[in-house]
């Protein structure tokens, strides 16, 4: 068990290391490009050389990588080209905003999709199952940018109940959070619900559920004690992996609703070639994703006694 956890954490460190190498190779390997991106395409050749010299870009690549990694590990991501301030000053508040958005999304997503998935999987092929299954296919089929359009058309332009942007320019307002959360919820609900349904339906056909029924247990107890414990192991992992998905999902939503979050920051940075912001965002995103993956793996071993005791 301890071995398993230390293995997972070891793998997480290796992944982060490999990702940092890849990022470095992709974005910082050729100093000339860096200088162009930082100083702009119309800067003079001379100023570029001076800048490169001042920032240690004439050192060999491996040495530069070492220094770069050291700075990253201590939270020094460099200065944003566009905002001319240290990246960390922009990044952390943006990440916090995204965390708020993610929290509310999960607060609705987890109970609703698990409950509907379990209900559908309990009686495979029933009317309820069909409604939930087809409903979840439809919701997963609408891309986020399309559902933002549909929802805005209804709630913003027609009913005029909700604001069309979520920039929170005059302080935090929950009303502005509703549409972004709803869009993320609609897109992801179907996936989690379908996974839960499949897991539940599979468990319901196993011989040990038959044993439980033929033991004379009340149906409630068959479901709550015997089925759910096994059926929710897989969805747990799926939900943890949704954190990774959410990091992609927020980009579209934050962009559309002008929400000042992490995803919008990354997108703006990439559209403006804001090099150090891209690097910082990518590293942070991978770190969050890998951490959630590691937690999912460790949690899985805890939930599954067949792995826990072997």
């Amino acid at each position: 068990m301890v071995v398993l956890i230390s293995k997972r954490i070891g793998f997480m460190v290796i992944t982060m290391f490999v990702v940092s190498v890849l990022l470095f190779l992709a974005l910082e390997f050729s100093p000339g490009d860096v200088a162009t991106k930082v100083l702009g395409p119309y800067s003079s050749e001379e100023s570029r050389q001076l800048w490169l010299e001042a920032h240690g870009y004439f050192e060999p690549a491996w040495k530069r990588y070492g220094i770069w990694l050291g700075k990253f590990a201590t939270g020094d991501f460099g200065d944003s080209v566009r905002f001319k301030v240290p990246v960390s000053e922009i990044l952390w508040p943006r990440l916090w905003n995204t965390a708020i958005l993610g929290f509310w999304t999960f607060a609705f997503l987890i109970p609703v999709s698990l409950a509907l998935g379990v209900l559908a999987g309990m009686r495979e092929g029933s009317k309820l199952d069909r409604v939930i299954s087809v409903g979840s296919i439809i919701t997963t089929s609408i891309p986020e940018f399309a559902s933002t359009v549909f929802l805005s058309a209804i709630f913003v332009f027609t009913l005029r109940w909700l604001p069309g942007t979520s920039s929170m320019s005059s302080g935090f307002e929950f009303k502005q959070l509703i549409l972004p959360v709803l869009v993320l919820f609609i897109y992801d609900f179907g996936y989690v619900a379908r996974m839960t349904r499949a897991s539940m339906a599979e468990v319901m056909t196993t011989p040990y559920i038959r044993t439980a029924i033929l033991k004379g247990l009340p149906y409630r107890q068959v479901i709550l004690k015997h089925a759910l414990r096994n059926a929710l192991i897989a969805p747990f992992t799926v939900i943890m992996l949704q954190i990774n998905w959410l990091l992609s999902g927020v980009i579209v939503v934050e962009f559309f609703f002008a929400y000042k979050g992490f995803g919008a920051l990354l997108l703006e940075a990439s559209l403006n070639q804001d090099l150090y912001v891209i690097e910082a965002c990518a590293m942070v995103a991978v770190f969050v994703a890998v951490t959630s993956q590691t937690l999912a793996d460790i949690g899985y071993t805890f939930l599954n006694p067949r792995i826990r005791f072997s």
């Binding site: 992709a26 980009i251 990439s270 559209l271 990518a282 994703a289």
Partner: peptide, 19 residues
Amino acid sequence: SDIILSFPVLVLYIIIIAT
């Protein structure tokens, strides 16, 4: 593939296309 999959997909696309 574990390493590639650990990237949030859209982040990966943005990095590739930005580069």
